[in-house]
C-alpha cells in the first residue's frame, strides 16, 4: 500500500487546536483570569472574616458607616456589617446563581432543541412556536411576576418558602425557565444540519437509537456553540438576578447578593455613595470579564478555523 504511513503525527484533537487559538487571545485570557480570581475571592470570604476578625452578616448598630481601616478594608455599611467580606459573600450568591442559571437554561435548551431537531414534523413545529412565544414576552415584568408568585398556591410548604434557599432556587429556576430559548434554537439548527451529515446516516443504517445519535454525534458536534452561549448567558443571568434583587423580589435577607445590596442604594447615594458604587462596580467587572471570555471562546471555536486543521 503506497499510502500507508510509517509514522503518524501525534494525535491532535480539535480541542487542542482551539486551546492554542484561545491562548493567543489576550482579552479572553484576561476575562477568564478576572473571573477565576473573582470566584476564588468570593469563596474565600469566610476565611477573610476570620483573618480580619469581622463579620459579613452580624449587624452592629454602634459601628455604622465606618471608614476603611486595617480590619474593615472597605469600611462598614448602614447596619455596621463589614463591607468587604459582605461584598465577597454576596458575590458568591450572584456568581453561583449566574452559573447555575446559565447551566440550567443551557440544559433545558439543549434538550428541547435536540428533541425538536430529531423529531421534526409537528413536535418540532409546536416546540418552536412555544420557543418563539417565550422570546417575544416582556422579559423583566414576567420575571418580576414569577419572582412574586405565591409558592403556597403551588403546594410548597411554609417552612421552605420562608427559608433563604427558596429565594435562591426560585431565581435559578426562573432564569432557567425564561433563558433556554436561545440555546434551544442553536441546538435545533445544529441538529437539523448534522442529521443530514453522512456520519449520522452511517449510524442510522446501523439502527442506532435517537438517543445514541444525540449523545455520540449531535452533542459533541454542537457543544462549542453551547459553551459560548452558556458563558454569555451567565453574564445576562447575573444582570437579571441583580435587577430582581434590586427591585426586592430576588434574593431575600438574611442572604444577600450584589443586586440586593443595592436595594436601598438610592437613599445611600447622597450619604454613603461608595456603598452604592461597590456592588454595581463588581457586577460590571464580572460581566465584562464574562463577555470577553465568551467572545474569545466564540472566535477560538470558529468551525472555519477547525476545518483548517
Amino acid at each position: 500500500m503506497s499510502e500507508a504511513m510509517a509514522t503518524l503525527p501525534p494525535a491532535v484533537s480539535v480541542w487542542t487546536l482551539r486551546w492554542r487559538r484561545l491562548r493567543r487571545d489576550r482579552a479572553a485570557l484576561a476575562g477568564g483570569a478576572v473571573l477565576l480570581a473573582m470566584v476564588a475571592l468570593c469563596l474565600a470570604s469566610p476565611w477573610f472574616e476570620r483573618a480580619l476578625g469581622v463579620s459579613a452578616s452580624d449587624t452592629d448598630l454602634f459601628n455604622r458607616f465606618q471608614p476603611s481601616d486595617a480590619s474593615h478594608l472597605l469600611g462598614s455599611d448602614d447596619a455596621g456589617r463589614d463591607e468587604f467580606t459582605r461584598l465577597l459573600a454576596a458575590g458568591w450568591i450572584s456568581l453561583s446563581i449566574g452559573l447555575l442559571g446559565a447551566l440550567g437554561a443551557s440544559l433545558v435548551g439543549t434538550l428541547i432543541g435536540a428533541i425538536a431537531g430529531m423529531s421534526r414534523g409537528w413536535v418540532d413545529m409546536v416546540l418552536m412556536r412555544f420557543t418563539d412565544g417565550i422570546i417575544a414576552l416582556p422579559t423583566l415584568p414576567l420575571l418580576i411576576i414569577l419572582a412574586a408568585l405565591d409558592l403556597s398556591k403551588l403546594g410548597f410548604s411554609q417552612e421552605f418558602i420562608r427559608s433563604g434557599a427558596a429565594g435562591y432556587w426560585r431565581i435559578v429556576l426562573i432564569v432557567t425557565l425564561l433563558g433556554w430559548t436561545g440555546v434551544a434554537r442553536l441546538v435545533r439548527a445544529g441538529t437539523l444540519a448534522l442529521a443530514e451529515r453522512e456520519f449520522v446516516l452511517a449510524a442510522r443504517t446501523q439502527g442506532a437509537s435517537a438517543w445514541w445519535i444525540i449523545r455520540v454525534h449531535i452533542l459533541p458536534n454542537t457543544v462549542s456553540p453551547i459553551i459560548v452561549a452558556t458563558t454569555l448567558a451567565m453574564g445576562r443571568v447575573i444582570l437579571a438576578e441583580s435587577a430582581l434583587s434590586f427591585l426586592g423580589v430576588g434574593i431575600q435577607p438574611p442572604q444577600s447578593s450584589w443586586g440586593s445590596m443595592l436595594t436601598n442604594a438610592q437613599e445611600l447615594i447622597s450619604t454613603a455613595p461608595e456603598l452604592a458604587l461597590y456592588p454595581g462596580a463588581l457586577i460590571l467587572i464580572t460581566v465584562v470579564a464574562i463577555n470577553f471570555l465568551g467572545d474569545g471562546l466564540q472566535a477560538a471555536f470558529d468551525p472555519r478555523e477547525d476545518a483548517r486543521g
Binding site: V14, E198, F199, L201, A202, T205, H217, P220, N221
Partner: peptide, 18 residues
C-alpha cells in the same frame, strides 16, 4: 442492519470530526 453496511461518497462528511 449488521450485515448490510455502507460506504459514502464524501470521506470528509462520513467521519465524525469529534
Amino acid at each position: 442492519r449488521r450485515e448490510v453496511q455502507v460506504v459514502f461518497q464524501d470521506p470528509f462528511g462520513s467521519l465524525d470530526p469529534r
